[in-house]
Design a protein around this nucleic acid. Structure first.
Lengths: 337, 337
DNA sequence: ATGAGAAGTGGAAACGTTTACACCCCTGTG
DNA sequence: CACAGGGGTGTAAACGTTTCCACTTCTCAT
């Protein structure tokens, strides 16, 4: 079926050891042997069996990645960035979807460890319940947390500066004349949701004490954005601005408001987080915070491959700044009165 | 570092062979041995090394999947469906992104074959240039084409019925009063783009001979939708309807029209293809064809695992019908005059 | 001329499993 | 009582690599 290195060695008239050395570019091989092996390999269409190599070298050249839900459009961008980086580093990506379920997540991590991945990129679905999984994985493999952190475990982490982002967008809204706020986001099961909520509270709480009543937490989905908006509309007058914890939520909020005849941004300003591709095609286009996706992916892979190659030292935390992208959903607010 | 089956065997006081048999649930193991092995395994935290197992059994329990571009929001849904199906079948997914480049695609397929995947799910980036890659892969592994086919190779395929979809949407638009048409889609490098274009021509060509001039082909992106729309607007009067080859394109078209003050659907109806999550939050919401993503993923995995388990027979082609989802971008067309 | 060292090579062990095969012991049947 | 057959077990081979080690040959300095 498959051509093995033994076939190549026989065809080239050398031993398996010499064939192996020639194929892996080791120095101590004569020019004649090298030529013979390479041409035999070419002629026979030899491809090295990475399973056997992995067993012998105790390294698979594979990195596992666990994402909470690949259909959430923010994660594919991260996966794409990671995959591209890994591929240039000659490594393969083993992808798992935890479906936001910490138990399923744990079993997927186990499956990855069983496959002897060299490293793990972990987007934790639950900052508390994923901690044990991360800690356990840490004992057998190098691991870097991406985008979402976990509590109580000292591990490398790379993600966006959520607090900075929220401060930027609130400052922008206040400058645009907004005085009252609401917040629609995900329940604080993951670290990003938690960081965004607490930054929002710190930024808004002091001057808008009604904002607490207008804080609605659900999940990262269009449907939740719509539902929260209906709740807010039926509860009383809307605030000047609705800050959303993610673009998917903001797009739902915007759609529901628009369909109800509420003008965005003239009646209510709306902002998102992430800057997914569809933030720019809504009506009005969505003001949001652009995640440095490529940088996060690159930094994560760099960190991880460094660790795999033996880099030691304390856990590194890389917090990258987002970029405020001002679009129509917040910009041309009509001045009151 | 890792606990091996040898450690378990020693701790249980049996041979490696017996330990292996006990762990894999073979019948001929005494109750006493079984108990001893299982408890030793538990106590020591043994996890079987799948690399060694794969080498011996010549099967990795892994399926490779190649997608053209994971950040195109249609593919994550497919990946999610496939991943879920595989995971219940106890298999792992090795994901590669070909970035729509047939050469990169070929090298990613090689990498997957080197890793001895048991099967391959292949979304071909180019119906012609990917054919050689598929044919080569076919020689060493079971393979099923998904969503996009290739020319000239007899292989299992599962995807949506593109021609049916286009016929459905054109019929709907004509019923809504549209008499002149335009088509904005991707260049026909992949089989879906080709099938949609030819179905469109067949459906529209006979009664709107100007439609050929309003056929613009680029790629699957929001930007291309915007660019094509600008071209159309500057070229003369717009048709009654713009049929788009994908939702991403249609959302770009809709945004560009709306920003230019053209009313959708009153001046121009717009339709998409795929029914991605964001089709429903645009203004107006997008009429489109919903892909049976879960069914495609399930059928693909079923087909592939069947082949892996030895099913023989001629290549199977599964063409699943899309569902027309009528929303605001086409429905309430004002009657002419 | 001799010895040290380098270059080139092959044999064989190792990675951690699964499994073919041989063996032993027991039971039940002739 | 012999013996067939089956349950339970261990030894060892195999999967396809990489790599340690020993060996030969050659070069060059002494």
């Amino acid at each position: 079926m498959y051509v093995t290195i033994r076939d190549v060695a026989v065809a080239a008239g050398v031993s398996i050891a010499t064939a192996s050395r020639a194929l892996s570019g080791e120095p101590n091989v004569s020019a004649a042997s090298l030529r013979a092996v390479l041409s035999a390999s070419e002629r026979l269409g030899y491809r090295t069996n990475t399973v056997a190599r992995s067993l012998r070298t105790r390294s698979t050249g594979t990195v596992g990645m666990v994402v909470p839900r690949i259909s959430n459009p923010y994660f594919p961008r991260l996966v794409e960035a990671v995959e591209r980086q890994l591929s240039t580093a000659g490594r393969e990506l083993l992808l798992c979807d935890s479906q936001n379920d910490p138990d399923l997540e744990a079993s997927r991590v186990d499956a990855l460890l069983d496959r002897r991945v060299d490293g793990l990129i972990f987007i934790a679905s639950d900052s508390r319940r994923s901690a044990a999984t991360a800690a356990r994985a840490q004992r057998s493999v190098r691991i870097v947390l991406m985008d979402r952190s976990v509590t109580g475990v000292r591990l490398d982490f790379v993600g966006v500066d959520n607090a900075l982002g929220v401060r930027m967008v609130v400052a922008h809204l206040r400058q645009a004349g907004c005085a009252s706020f609401g917040f629609v986001s995900s329940r604080t099961v993951d670290s990003s949701a938690r960081a965004r909520l607490s930054a929002y509270r710190r930024a808004v709480g002091r001057f808008d004490k009604d904002s607490a009543a207008r804080t609605l937490l659900g999940d990262y989905s269009v449907e939740w954005g719509r539902e929260a908006t209906r709740t807010l509309m039926s509860a009383g007058p809307l605030p000047d601005a609705l800050v959303c914890g993610a673009d998917v939520v903001a797009l739902g909020v915007n759609a529901e408001l628009t369909e109800a005849g509420v003008s965005v941004p003239d009646d209510v300003a709306v902002t998102g987080f992430d800057d997914i591709a569809f933030a720019s095609v809504s009506t009005p286009p969505l003001t949001t915070l652009r995640q440095p996706t490529d940088e996060i992916g690159a930094a994560g892979v760099r960190l991880l491959t460094g660790r795999i190659d033996g880099a030691d030292g304390p856990a590194v935390i890389e917090s990258l700044p987002p970029e405020l992208v001002v679009r129509g959903s917040s910009s041309r607010r009509r001045v009151a009165g």
